[in-house]
Nucleic acid binder design. Structure first.
Lengths: 203, 203
DNA sequence: GATGTTATGGTTCGATCGCACCACAAACCG
DNA sequence: CGGTTTGTGGTGCGATCGAACCATAACATC
């Protein structure tokens, strides 16, 4: 059944063109004509596979999200078996940083979409209702770290998780702006992680 | 010399229209016609006072920056005489949060401009070369706090300042998205400030 | 092998864009 | 008083936008 495969490949081909244009010039440059030219297809095909422009932008974002999740899982799997909570949280947080070309361009695309989430009522509602999944995940991992002696018990897991995620997101912006190198960002974050995950070697 | 005043008032009137449109629909909605209608002037006036659209966007941003700086100084002055380093840093950081309608709309406008700084080569260079003024300011204040016994000496001022500013910027995003209340953000930040500024009452 | 569905290209339309251009009033300056 | 600068409105032009529309290969189904 190569039909479905072809269909998805076409959508991906078009979505990638959307991403490239969005990273270069923001969403304003993502016009139907430009996307068609960038993807090497006719404008008619965009309508066929995505419908209206709004749906095209939305569809391209969904595909990007699926990609991101898969890449994240792959990288986390590379941590080896039974990694410490410190390493896991570090891996999760670093998905938010533009540490390689793939993550950099991905977060550039996200930045282009960000204003939409602030202004478009429908998207704003989605963002508002979406639980801060990453933050809750990190908070849970810190609690696990406390239960297994990798994190001091006087650490406020929820507050630290919130600030860690927020801090990494802030670092993301400055690295994207090239105000700060990726290495500097990693160092600053590791400094905070070292504070939370006190490695007493006595787990 | 009412001439200059009139001129600046006109520019401000137009700039405010730009801000309102940008907060409502992002920079894409800031078209010459829309700005003219929103400001209640003819489209010709925009050309007269700002020139091209690009210069209009740039000019409106500059005026917003001047505004922001003035408001920040006013609020900091309200801290009273001889405030502690803790209070000063807190005040500086809170300028980044949408704690009232004025700051909320201001940061919405900044968000709309953000992508420009990532994609426009000229703006990207500006952002890249701009020192992270806020971060250096906070770092300096923390060092002063160490010298006056308000901050433990084992605190890494540069690393903490970097993460504090980044964390507040991250909080800013989630508050703008209404994923988190301003009060929650304040609480999380205060939790971090309490850690850095250990109030031993022995200054 | 007729028929319908899927996948693709090309074209066109009305709206809107940024901006250049024209006209004119008011104010200032000689 | 006459002319030049300054401030304002209106209008038009070429380009581009999103999207609807038309045509038609390729392929599947019976």
């Amino acid at each position: 059944m190569p039909r479905q495969v072809d269909h998805d490949q076409r959508r991906r081909q078009i979505a990638e063109a959307v991403w490239r244009l969005a990273t270069r010039g923001g969403l304003e440059d993502v016009t139907l004509r430009q996307v068609a030219a960038e993807a090497g297809v006719s404008a008619r095909l965009l309508q066929y596979y995505f419908g209206t422009r709004e749906q095209l932008l939305l569809g391209a974002l969904e595909i990007l999200n699926d990609d991101a999740e898969q890449r994240a899982r792959e990288r986390l799997a590379k941590l080896g078996e039974a990694p410490g909570m410190h390493a896991i949280v570090r891996g999760v947080l670093f998905e938010l940083l533009p540490l390689d070309e793939e993550r950099r361009s991905r977060h550039l695309v996200y930045a282009a979409y960000f204003v939409r989430f602030l202004t478009d009522p429908a998207l704003a509602k989605v963002a508002r209702d979406a639980p801060r999944a990453l933050e809750n995940l990190v908070a849970g991992l810190i609690v696990q770290g406390q239960e297994s002696g990798q994190v001091p018990l006087n650490i406020n897991a929820a507050a630290e998780a919130a600030f860690l995620v927020a801090g990494v997101e802030g670092m993301q912006s400055s690295v994207l702006l090239r105000q700060r190198s990726a290495e500097d960002a990693v160092a600053v974050i590791d400094h905070q992680l070292a504070r939370v995950f006190t490695t007493t070697n006595s787990a």
